[in-house]
């Protein structure tokens, strides 16, 4: 097809599989680290607040490829055999935890203050208040931006090409070197990315509209 064989398209799909694997690892890792970051960002203790804020500022001020390199070379100095997948997953975790922490902080703060006060009036402890009153409401607000950020995660896994992780971008690059049909190959790669990302974007937007209608 267009000077590129079926096998070669299969190679792209193989790369796309690893893109999805890395995205999922980044999202799961980002959730595990990001939730404490969000909680620390809204905590009243100034130490937690400062440290988490500094963490977010740090990660957001450094480009993802550089984070990938730091992790990649950083893991190797500890004498571990560096697997590009492990390094890329750690880097994606760092990256997405900072952004998810910031997003979720906003979502928790978007729950009206009166909800906290009402919980206090019902003599709930602060943990109970958070789990039974605030969290369910914050979760609903958090769905659209989180799905929207998933798109960013999928797209940004493409930066793992700098440390030689075999993902969709890397496979497209290799294919291009082999066949020199850049238009066909990079269009195909772009279409695969689009097919993953566009439904997520649409879903995020629809969910947001529904949320607005309910609140209106």
């Amino acid at each position: 097809m267009l000077g590129v064989s079926i096998d070669q398209y299969g190679f792209l799909v193989q790369g796309a599989f690893w893109t999805i694997v890395l995205s999922l690892m980044g999202f799961v890792g980002g959730t595990i680290v990001g939730l404490p970051v969000a909680l620390a960002r809204i905590s009243r203790g100034w130490f937690l607040c400062r440290v988490s804020s500094a963490y977010v500022q740090f990660v957001q001020g450094i480009p993802l490829p550089v984070i990938m390199f730091v992790v990649y070379f950083g893991v190797s100095i500890y004498g571990f055999d560096v697997n590009a997948l492990v390094a890329a997953a750690i880097a994606m975790t760092l990256y997405s935890s900072a952004y998810l922490g910031e997003i979720w902080k906003g979502c928790i703060q978007a729950v009206p203050k009166t909800q906290w006060e009402a919980g206090e009036c019902l003599a709930l402890t602060s943990v109970q208040r958070f789990i039974y009153v605030i969290l369910p409401q914050a979760l609903r607000i958090a769905v659209p931006p989180t799905v929207g950020f998933l798109v960013q995660i999928v797209k940004n896994t493409s930066y793992s090409v700098v440390i030689g992780f075999f993902d969709l971008t890397y496979s497209a690059k290799i294919l291009n070197n082999a066949t020199f049909k850049p238009f066909v190959i990079f269009t195909a790669a772009a279409l695969i990315y689009f097919a993953i990302c566009f439904p997520l974007s649409r879903y995020a937007r629809r969910f947001e509209l529904r949320l607005h209608r309910r609140n209106a």
Binding site: V151, K155, N156, S158, Y159, V161, T169, A172, K173, N176, P182, F183, F186, T187, A189, A190, Y193, F194, C197, F198, S201
Partner: peptide, 14 residues
């Protein structure tokens, strides 16, 4: 939509 749903690096290579 095309730009926002594909990675910059693919656009650059393209």
């Amino acid at each position: 939509e095309a730009i926002r749903n594909t990675p910059l690096i693919i656009q650059v290579f393209w």
